[in-house]
Design a binder for these strands. Structure first.
Lengths: 205, 205
DNA sequence: GCAATTTTTGACCGTTTGGACAAACGTTAA
DNA sequence: TTAACGTTTGTCCAAACGGTCAAAAATTGC
């Protein structure tokens, strides 16, 4: 069951153009959401005509789906790297660092993802209940072990992970608000470094 | 400058209907975002015809603006209540509790707000840079005092507030994801209580 | 060079959407 | 009763949108 949908063969041009469209779509979707974005906007951003774009993607839905599925992998990578045999504090610290770096370097990806979840995750709910849940179950178990061994302050490992997600992604998703509140002085690029240091202190007290 | 825009007099019916429309609009906007919602959907939800709705609100934009401005007040109320003369731990604990209760009881409001910020806060940026920043500056100063007095663990008061926002609102905005990951057993109503307890431990360590 | 194939585009279509409008309906008060 | 005012709706329109199609242009393989 559920075979990998026999990926169609693609020419070099097709791969390149699909990539180009993906980049343009990320830019547009992350700013206006799915319904708020038009195929024309994406085509413009990709420097091609609408019919040409639709030659590479069946429809708007498929562009979005391709994008968000590819994103999920990137998005989960940092958590995947968390190593049961490593030092708990080092592992958590690295995880927080990586997540903050992603918020800084890939805010569009974060916002696209946030948008999808906000709307009720209509396109990725199965992934959340499957792949994501499995991964979190696995890592939460590791964290629980660390806590039981007294190597990490005891708390609920699931909410611990949620809290790391929430706080780090906040700096991408709510960036406008963060900058508005911090103002001219502290709202510069340094805010990510400040955030990282604060979060290390918070989670590794 | 900037006079309160001379609020037009309204009949009882006008106030009631505008209230009714607001409720319907909240329901629709919070699910589909601004661009994803149609006036027809809102009119349906309010049990009236589209032209009738447009008799009470000039256009879609005005419905949204009215809604989100009214929301800001509700949204900031908990922070406003934080009292400099109170016991730091009690004050912070109450704040977290109230924010979690809001995530549980008013998730639509939270999502609407999140949506607006995600899109770059086009309609409320001035509010963020003005009223919100002032309030946060004031409360951050209080927290800083508490920290300097050794009555609260030292950290950056601004990022401290951000972290409380992020973690509490996460349970409204990312509710689908939270429930997907927690699964059948722990994803029930108890999750808010679990979250509150976890967050108290996290922020009041 | 040329035929087959892939890529690109202008023109077009049906639907949805925000919004305008005038006519109808209901209510109130003289 | 009726005039005035507030409320409601059916109808309509122009713009925007997702998507199609046939034909032109570019590329590839021989």
């Amino acid at each position: 069951m559920d075979k990998p949908a026999a990926r169609p063969k693609r020419t070099r041009i097709q791969r390149e153009k699909r990539e180009l469209i993906g980049e343009a779509a990320l830019e547009v979707f992350s700013q206006h959401g799915f319904r708020g974005s038009t195929i024309d906007q994406i085509a413009d951003a990709a420097g091609m005509s609408k019919p040409n774009l639709l030659y590479y993607f069946k429809n708007k839905e498929e562009i979005f789906a391709t994008l968000i599925h590819r994103l999920m992998e990137t998005w989960l990578a940092p958590l995947r790297e968390m190593d049961a045999t490593g030092d708990p504090h080092t592992e958590i610290r690295s995880y927080i660092r990586r997540k903050i770096e992603m918020a800084r370097d890939f805010p569009r990806e974060s916002r696209l993802f946030a948008n999808e979840i906000l709307q009720g995750a209509p396109r990725i709910l199965p992934l959340l209940e499957g792949e994501l849940k499995e991964l979190v179950d696995e890592k939460a178990a590791i964290i629980a072990t660390w806590m039981r061994a007294g190597r990490l302050k005891k708390s609920d490992p699931y909410h611990f992970i949620f809290a790391i997600w929430a706080t780090t992604q906040h700096y991408a998703d709510f960036d406008v608000q963060v900058r508005a509140v911090l103002g001219e002085n502290r709202g510069g690029e340094g805010r990510f470094e400040d955030a990282a240091r604060f979060l290390e202190g918070l989670f590794l007290a």
